[in-house]
Design a protein around this nucleic acid. Sequence first.
DNA 1: TTCAGTGCAAAAACTTTGCAGGAGG
DNA 2: CCTCCTGCAAAGTTTTTGCACTGAA
Lengths: 152, 152
Amino acid sequence: MSVNLNEAHEVFRKYLKQEKHRVTPERFEVLDFALKYEGHFGADELYLRMKNNKSNVSRATVYNTLELLAACELLAKRNFGENKTRYESNYGRKSHDHLICINCGAIKEFTEPEIEEIVAQVAKKLGFKPQGHSFNIFGKCNNANCKHKDNE
Amino acid sequence: MSVNLNEAHEVFRKYLKQEKHRVTPERFEVLDFALKYEGHFGADELYLRMKNNKSNVSRATVYNTLELLAACELLAKRNFGENKTRYESNYGRKSHDHLICINCGAIKEFTEPEIEEIVAQVAKKLGFKPQGHSFNIFGKCNNANCKHKDNE
DNA sequence: TTCAGTGCAAAAACTTTGCAGGAGG
DNA sequence: CCTCCTGCAAAGTTTTTGCACTGAA
């Protein structure tokens, strides 16, 4: 599970330089906490976790940096219909989509190669240059203690 | 563009009875405004529009009713990654997905029959009972004045 | 030296909740 | 007549903004 943080730092550094953003220690601190986070997280959750771990990076910086990390694809930006942005590490992972249980909130991942073909085909037909997609399936899972959990 | 409101009222009334919710004039007022709204709208936008049209239905009732209307499928609930819930009329329309321009916010619709097959297939494989999906493609549109618009 | 980035707190945007009164069944 | 629904306002959640200061280039 431990990823190579140095490599990720390098990717981020290159991106920042290229886009003429400054390279600051706070930004790498956010990157580290984000890549260490298991599963999906919201910006505020990450901020609070950092606070609790004696980091004194501000909320504004966390929000700002997560956007940058999504822009350079180290993180993936998600939205599971809860009106909050979720992120997850995209570093060294293959792209995937999600199934969400409407009872207990459980999230499963899946990969379906056809989806990229559909994206390309539809975008072309309607004159779009595709940059990404979001495909969520909502339903009820068969987990034994589904309905007992409240969230997550 | 004018839909048959009476038919929609009947669908809603049946749903309310069946689910043991009360049939109130406020709920039908929300339904009427929702079906008349062109395109996608947020709950608060609908509330404000109703206010401006001399309706005195409260914010709480609007939010509550839109949930009911989505539950009985008179409306479709959407999320285009802006951290707010959007609705659109689903009455007498065939289901569709969306392409969203990341520059100007333009939204185009598309229908792709394969998608339902993928939903069924993936859900089955992972032990889910599917209840719906959300498929958004993000990209840049070829509209002449794209980038000039700020939103919508 | 310069100005983008930072921390902090306040504001904004959207949604939910608490409460007292009113009307649907 | 019993509560569910309503309006209103307050509070909650997540995200954005304004401002003065700091440190990267």
